[in-house]
Nucleic acid binder design. Structure first.
Lengths: 242, 242
DNA sequence: CTGTAGACAACCATAAGACAAGTGAGACAG
DNA sequence: CTGTCTCACTTGTCTTATGGTTGTCTACAG
């Protein structure tokens, strides 16, 4: 059976991190040391570490090293099934593509939640080079002020914002693909789009982030498991708008 | 009867995939390895693999290999109220409208779940006289045999079926409105449709009902509350299809 | 139509190395 | 003691190369 090296290394490191092998600071051995212990090249080691970073298990600081992140919220990230983790499991490469980064007057839908001025980041998510999602994130100006374009390219907002988060509300709807999004995602204008809007709040319930995800309808679906108590005739969670 | 080599190979591979012989990643041996094990040429091996790909059992990635497409992780999410309860709360009148009631050969999407013959009930849901959903319910023939059209008009399937239910899996997607549905719902053909498909199983996990709900995209959205533990960068529950 | 055999392109994982940029600790002058 | 400089070490990013894998094509035989 063929093996994919960096996945085995990532698995092993996951275990060692879980076993708290790296002491109080959680500082991992340097990349070159890991190269020696696993007898792998630095590219391979980095790919393993980068997948762990995507899962929120470790963080990296240039010139310092790789640190196991102790934040329980971030540790929780690993176990959940996001699209990007699905991509990794199936061996596809996921990437992000920043197509906009600016401080603007808040759009009408966002203003009541985040205030008048916001940081808007528009991003494209790619699987194996092909775009599969357009994501726009709005962030309160005071929280986004110190973020750079390079930050949001490499890290998720949840990693960057040093604010304890409380919860989120997600709404999923269907729209026709706009001209802008159609071009970004390489699908026909007017085709079906699955749109997820999420409002994330801090521990006090104050909204911190608003994100809008647009997926091509033919590529994505949303799955909900309903327990025995929630069985009802109609689709639960659905609501009429407007 | 002459043996057709690549079909035998495909059958064998089907079995090995079903037996999960290829581990977590689901990575199959390379084509050349399969050539050796089956003592066949690469063209033959590829034809076997390609038929499996047509069936959706495996996927291929150039330069990487053949991967058994695994069932995506299904994610449990809290549910909310139903549309009809919302309608009642907001003082609107909800009504149902049976537009089809017949025993038929099961459609391809339903047959693997419910068997060859099913009862199909097509229904329209109205709010204050205006249609807002087209619902099709398929029911195992043996369970639906004693139901009449009058029964399904007045009662929900969950009331009618005297079977203890176990749980359900709901998938939500976006499509363009078909001509049929557009006419039933009085919206333009090709406009955005929110589609919810739900498979309901009995206490033993055997599927009992399959329902497909089609909503006009501009009228409906799906709401999910996420607790602090489930906060992630990407929309949880969403998955890539195809 | 099925199968064999081979060749080539495109792509992926990995190796090995070079250089830029950041960090931290110790040496050293004041 | 304080500030500054240097230097070893680290990560970030890039290039080049190799072997293995799939994608596609041609030629040929039953």
């Amino acid at each position: 059976m063929r093996q994919i090296r960096y996945r085995n290394i990532a698995d092993d490191l996951r275990g060692r991190i879980a076993a708290e092998e790296f002491g109080a600071g959680g500082l991992l051995p340097s990349e070159s040391t890991l190269c020696a212990t696993y007898e792998a090249s630095r590219v391979t080691i980095r790919r393993a570490l980068e997948t762990l970073r995507d899962e929120g298990l470790v963080e990296s600081r240039q010139g310092f090293g790789w640190v196991a992140s102790s934040d329980p919220v971030r540790q929780g990230l690993a176990s959940l099934g996001t699209i990007e983790s699905q991509l990794r499991e199936s061996g596809r490469r996921s990437a992000r593509d920043i197509v906009g980064f600016r401080f603007i007057e808040a759009p009408a839908t966002v203003r009541p939640l985040l205030g008048d001025r916001v940081l808007e980041v528009r991003r494209r998510n790619l699987a194996d080079g092909a775009p599969f999602a357009r994501v726009t994130v709005w962030c309160r100006e005071d929280l986004g002020a110190e973020l750079s374009k390079a930050d949001v390219t490499r890290h998720s907002f949840y990693e960057l914002l040093k604010v304890p988060l409380g919860g989120a509300t997600q709404t999923i709807g269907a729209r026709q693909m706009s001209a802008d999004d159609a071009e970004l995602l390489d699908v026909p204008v007017g085709s079906a789009a699955l749109v997820a809007q999420r409002v994330t709040s801090d521990a006090q319930g104050v909204p911190v982030l608003v994100a809008e995800h647009v997926f091509p309808g033919h590529l994505t679906e949303f799955v909900v498991e309903l327990g025995v108590g929630t069985i009802v005739e109609d689709a639960p969670g659905l609501r009429l708008v407007e």
